[in-house]
Design a protein around this nucleic acid. Structure first.
Length: 502
RNA sequence: GCCGCCUUAGCUCAGUUGGUUAGAGCGCUAGAUUGUGGAUCUAGAGGUCCCCUGUUCAAUUCAGGGAGGCGGUACCA
């Protein structure tokens, strides 16, 4: 074994669970965010950006401890030894912001915010350590009108993105009903053991989608062993108690009001439970009054969402269609957004109860879904017009062309590399340039420029397989007088709805 | 965290019953084409065969340990 002296070369790779995005994705995603923002804006929410870093104690329960400072969140210590964390959602920073600026803010305070958040956990398919959320929240409004508005808001966003009414559903439940059911089956929520049991039950219910009623039943009782042989401990409920929860989960109805009717007996005389049902009834009435029927917003006892802070209504936007992925498997996108009422979050800072409700859109997953639906505009992926450099001694004339094109608002560039013509056309192809401007000796002598339509050329190449023919025909090229450069380019761009590049 | 599978070229993967020059397809670069992206043909570049230790005359191949990836599961604000 001979040891060669080698210079250190870092391996170029993106950190695990993170990703780079190329132009097409960036532009298409921006377009999608604009469509979402439009609806938030229309509803009257105001824009807010908060810092990506927060003091760890402001983020709440995920305080870094000495052994594992990065469990769940990414954290580090500042110069003054205080712990800083990258935000893991946009709600906790909102609570901090509201508490900090409470007196100056209009109340209710309604804001939307979009941006990356980070979670330090194992990445999986469709799960990353950095992802984008787009949230809207109303802080300081206790009534169900704010909650009902969240439901119609989410529905409007889906439809503004071009998702058909039968392809999505806003599903609503109420935490108070869940607690009412637990109370009715005799779970004691006053001590710590009872609270632990409550969380286990909620977690079990949350898995209804994936495991079905049988799986959930196991998790409510002794526990469940999965295919990999791992055992999950259950909530240790009695047979009767399990039956009570199952009865609740099996509540169905043909309309929101019918579901409310069916839910009432399940919560018995639990005060909390009855309150929850009454809240759902109110949401139903408010939504019905403005025309949001059961085809858009439904009530679903299986919805649980986050365990810690929701205190009332909770909801989820579910995509209900299926597609096939690259591997040919059936895929459901499932939940692309969620939210609910959290009346306790600001209280952590202020000591006073500040009611709040909101929703959060999972941008990456929604983006993947829109791609699967073919709802993304792929003309957005086109590159600039490329002016080839045929004669290096005459760079100035090519600069002048680009200058004219840009002055006319056309996205364009002069080739800045060192290679020959063939490589330049290949470059333009790779950039997805819609067209190429060519002026060599011949054109200059004639006072013309050649415009090569790259999109049409690609199309024509499909029916030409002889290279001689391909080259001699010079497919999809026209010559125009040098003085008609701009109008000639505009007319070709017009074929692909690229307008003047605006 | 737990269970299982995997790791050879930029990508997808073959292969070496342990032996000297480790392969394919795709991609990339260039030529055929004196001024043209596709197709075709030709050539070229590109590898610590994941890492460490051990066994051996010899390890990409065998053994042990580690790391990374994938899938499931748990947690998930």
């Amino acid at each position: 074994m001979s040891k060669k002296q080698k210079t250190f070369r870092p391996k170029a790779r993106v950190p695990k669970g993170l990703q780079d995005e190329r132009a097409t994705d960036v532009v298409q995603q921006r377009q999608m965010l604009d469509a979402i923002r439009h609806v938030f804006d229309l509803y009257g929410f105001e824009a807010l950006q908060t810092s990506a870093l927060e003091y760890a104690d402001a983020l709440g329960k995920f305080l870094p401890d000495a052994d594992r400072p990065n469990e769940g969140v990414f954290s580090f210590q500042d110069d003054d030894d205080q712990w800083l964390s990258l935000r893991y959602d946009l709600t906790a920073p909102l609570a901090r912001f509201v508490a900090q600026n409470y007196d100056a803010l209009p109340k209710p305070f309604r804001r939307y915010q979009e941006g990356p958040v980070w979670r330090n956990e194992k990445p999986g398919p469709g799960r990353f350590r950095q992802f984008t959320q787009f949230d809207a929240d109303t802080v300081g409004a206790a009534g169900m009108t704010a909650d009902a508005e969240m439901c119609s808001l989410m529905s409007d966003i889906m439809e503004n993105l071009g998702i058909a009414r039968e392809d999505y559903e806003v599903r609503v439940n109420n935490r108070k009903i869940l607690d009412g059911v637990l109370e009715t089956i005799g779970l004691d929520l006053s001590d710590e053991a009872g609270q632990g049991q409550r969380l286990t039950v909620l977690r079990a219910i949350d898995k209804l989608d994936r495991l079905g009623i049988e799986g959930v039943t196991l998790l409510l009782g002794k526990g469940r062993k999965d295919e990999s042989g791992d055992f999950t401990k259950g909530a240790e409920l009695s047979e009767d108690q399990i039956a009570g929860v199952v009865a609740f989960l099996e509540v169905k109805g043909t309309s929101r009001s019918a579901i409310c009717d069916a839910l009432a007996p399940v919560v018995g005389d639990s005060q909390t439970g009855l309150e929850g049902v009454a809240e759902l009834r109110e949401i139903d009435e408010l939504l019905t009054a403005v025309g949001y029927g059961d085809d858009r917003v439904v009530f679903d006892p299986g919805i649980v969402r986050g365990l810690e802070y929701y205190t009332g209504p909770v909801w989820e936007i579910e995509l209900t269609f299926e597609t096939t992925n690259e591997e040919g498997q059936q895929v459901r996108f499932g939940s692309v957004g969620s939210g609910g009422r959290y009346d306790g979050l600001v209280e952590r800072f202020k000591g006073v109860k500040v009611p709040a409700t909101g929703c959060s859109i999972g941008v990456s997953r929604l983006f993947a879904a829109l791609r699967a639906l073919g709802r993304l505009d792929d003309t957005e992926g086109y590159g600039p017009v490329v002016v080839l450099v045929m004669d290096r001694d005459d760079i100035k004339s090519y600069q002048a062309m680009v200058q004219e094109l840009r002055a006319a608002g056309i996205r364009s560039e002069m080739y800045l590399g060192e290679s020959g013509m063939r490589a330049q056309v290949k470059y333009a192809d790779k950039r997805r340039a819609p067209l190429v401007v060519i002026q060599g000796e011949d054109e200059r002598a004639a006072g013309e420029v050649t415009l090569k339509d790259m999109v049409l050329g690609t199309e024509m190449s499909k029916t030409i397989d002889d290279n001689k023919e391909w080259r001699e025909e010079q497919p999809a090229q026209i010559s125009v007088s040098r003085s008609d450069l701009v109008s000639g380019v505009q007319s070709i761009l017009g074929r692909y709805n690229l307008g003047s590049g605006k």
